[in-house]
Design a binder for these strands. Structure first.
Lengths: 187, 187
DNA sequence: AATTATACATACAGGTCTGTATAGTTTCAA
DNA sequence: TTGAAACTATACAGACCTGTATGTATAATT
C-alpha cells in the first residue's frame, strides 16, 4: 500500500506553493525539494503535474467549502442572519494570516481559456458558491429573489477581488452593509 | 529615428497575446513570430520582456480608461445617471467580440506578490477605478457616500469577475439594478 | 560615395521546465 | 528472514525560456 502520508505531504506543500506563487510559476522540482521527497515519489502518486494541479483544485474546493459553510452555519439564526453571516465569514477569511486570495479566481485568471481543465474546475466551484448563496436567498422569502441572489453573489466576488487587489480594506464590512440594505429593501 | 510603427506593431501583438494567454504563458519568441519581426528588433525597442510587459500594462491602462470614461460621459445626464451608466458601459464591454476579461485582475492574479512590479501596476490602475467611481458618487449628494462608493466599486469588480468566471451572464444588468436601489435608498 | 540607423536571419549560450531511466535503500508484512 | 512495495538519489532527455552574438541587407542622411 502506498504511503498515504507522503501523498498528503506532497499535496500540502504543492497547494501552499500554488497559492503563493501561482501554478505556472511553481515547478515540480520546487515541490519535490520542499516536500523533502524524491522526484519519482511525486510521479508515483501523481502521473503528471496536471494531475497534481487538479488534485490541488479539488482539495481546495472541498476544504474551503467545508470551512465556509460550517462557519456560516455556526453563526446560525434566521435565513436573513445567515445570509449576512456570509460577509462576516468573508471578513474573517481576509484577515487570516495565510490569506492568499481566492485560488479559483487566480487559477481562472491564469488559465482563462474556456476549455482549459483548470478553468473548468474553477468555474465549477464558483457555480457552487453562486448556487449556495442563491439557496440562502430562497429561504428568505423576498421579492426578485433571482436578482437579489445574483447581486449578493457579485458582492461576494467583488469583496474578495477588491481585497485581493488591496483597493478596499473594508470590503467585507461594506459588502455586508450593502447586502443588508438590499435584503431589507426587497423584503 | 526608430521606426515607431514597428514598436507599435510589436506592442499590439504582445498585448493581444498577453490578454489571451497570460503573461507567463506568452514567450518572446511567439511575440516575435506573430509580429513578423526580428528578435533583435524587439530587444532594440524593449530592453527586456519585463519592460515589454510594463509597456503593455501602461497602454492597457490608458486605452481602457479613455474608452471607459468617454463612454460614461457620452451617456451624460445627471450625476446619478452617470453613475448608473457605469454598469451599462460594463455590459457593452462584456459583449465586445474581443472581450478577454480585465487585464489587471488577471495580471494581479498571476503575480499576486505585493511587491511585484506587475502587481503594483495593476493595483495602481484599480485604485484609479475606485477613485473614479468615488468621484461620481461625490457629485450625487448622498448619505454615507464613502460606503456607497465602496459598494458600487465592489459591484463593478464583482460584475467583471463573475462575467469572467461565466457564472453570471446578466452581471451588468443585475449590478445596475442593485446600484439603483442602493443609490435611491441613500438619497 | 560614405556613413549611420534600422531591421533582417540564424545560431547559440545558459538556464528552466516536465518527465523518465536506473540503480540502490528502506520498510514492513508474511 | 525473505521478498515485494515504496522510497531515495542522481542523471539525463528533450523541449522550452530569455537574452546575446554575428553578420548581412536596406534605406536615409551627410
Amino acid at each position: 500500500m502506498v504511503n498515504k502520508s507522503k501523498k498528503e505531504q506532497i499535496l500540502r506543500v504543492a497547494s501552499e506553493l500554488f497559492n503563493k506563487q501561482g501554478i505556472r510559476a511553481t515547478g515540480v522540482d520546487q515541490v519535490v525539494a520542499e516536500s523533502k521527497v524524491a522526484k519519482m515519489t511525486l510521479y508515483n502518486h501523481f502521473p503528471s503535474k496536471d494531475e497534481l494541479v487538479l488534485s490541488y483544485l479539488k482539495r481546495q474546493d472541498e476544504q474551503w467549502r467545508d470551512w465556509f459553510e460550517s462557519s456560516v452555519d455556526r453563526r446560525g439564526g434566521t435565513p436573513q442572519n445567515r445570509l449576512l453571516a456570509v460577509y462576516d465569514v468573508l471578513g474573517e477569511w481576509f484577515v487570516a494570516p495565510d490569506f492568499t486570495g481566492c485560488a479559483f479566481i487566480k487559477t481562472a485568471s491564469e488559465f482563462s481559456d474556456d476549455n482549459h481543465p483548470y478553468f473548468v474546475a474553477s468555474h465549477q466551484y464558483k457555480v457552487y458558491l453562486r448556487d449556495y448563496i442563491a439557496s440562502l436567498v430562497e429561504q428568505c422569502n423576498v421579492k426578485q429573489s433571482q436578482m437579489l441572489a445574483s447581486t449578493l453573489y457579485m458582492l461576494v466576488e467583488g469583496a474578495i477581488m477588491t481585497y485581493m487587489l488591496q483597493t478596499e480594506p473594508e470590503a467585507a464590512v461594506h459588502a455586508r452593509e450593502a447586502a443588508q440594505i438590499l435584503i431589507q429593501q426587497l423584503s
